[in-house]
């Protein structure tokens, strides 16, 4: 009888441990991108450290002609997307969904939204300023960024795993992915969500809450 009790206690403890593991993995977002193991000497000891891929250095202007770069975003989480104002296909839906994200985290100084135009020829800063105010953005928490076409396309591809290119056969003249990319306080990509899907954007918002709790 004593053995039976001991076994029951062990089973309860073991299942508790498994649950704890599951709980912790459910509450931790994956870190996307390449990783490199690097040897470091800490306190005289050789330690293997994992270096994760981060957003490459960038410098772009926002709709109010203010420079936005990586340095300003340190310690904040942000959502990035790629669009163009004259887009007749997925952008309107993406913007409707981004309004939901903006409204949900409005006033939270740890959250930023960066919408990058992929058509800098047509989307002038003045046009982006008007577009931002039409969407109800304050221009500070949700910014609309413009830069050299090559810089933005490279940033999309190499930094945010998004595609952006000129394609005259596409409606509007460009092809791009409709992803919303979630970036953490250390500028590592932690999730990519379909910006045209209400269900996926709901998931993004709950993941943002998780990410905000990370130190």
């Amino acid at each position: 009888m004593q053995n039976l009790n001991k076994n029951i206690i062990l089973i309860v403890l073991f299942s508790g441990l498994i649950n704890a593991c599951n709980f912790s993995s459910q509450n931790q977002l994956p870190i996307l991108g390449n990783r490199v193991a690097e040897e470091k000497i800490i306190d005289g000891k050789l330690v293997v450290d994992t270096i994760y891929q981060t957003i490459p250095a960038f410098s772009l202007l926002n709709q109010d002609s203010i420079e936005v770069n990586n340095e300003m975003l340190k310690g904040k989480i942000y959502v990035a997307d790629f669009f163009f104002t004259s887009c007749p296909t997925i952008c309107p839906v993406m913007k409707k969904e981004m309004i939901r994200v903006y409204e949900e985290f409005k006033g939270n100084t740890q959250v930023v939204i960066l919408s990058h135009t992929i058509d800098p020829d047509y989307d002038t800063l003045a046009l982006l300023r008007d577009y931002a105010s039409r969407l109800g953005s304050d221009g500070k928490q949700w910014m609309f960024l413009r830069g050299d076409r090559k810089q933005v396309y490279d940033l999309a591809e190499k930094g945010y795993y998004a595609s952006a290119m000129v394609d005259s056969t596409e409606p509007g003249g460009f092809i791009h992915s409709g992803g919303f990319v979630l970036v953490d306080k250390l500028q590592r990509v932690r999730g990519i969500y379909d910006g045209t899907s209400t269900h996926e954007v709901d998931k993004l918002m709950s993941d943002m809450e998780l990410l905000l709790k990370e130190k």
Binding site: P92, K95, K96, L135
Partner: peptide, 9 residues
Amino acid sequence: DGKGIAHIV
């Protein structure tokens, strides 16, 4: 629902 999008559409 025909409500458009913000002041864009």
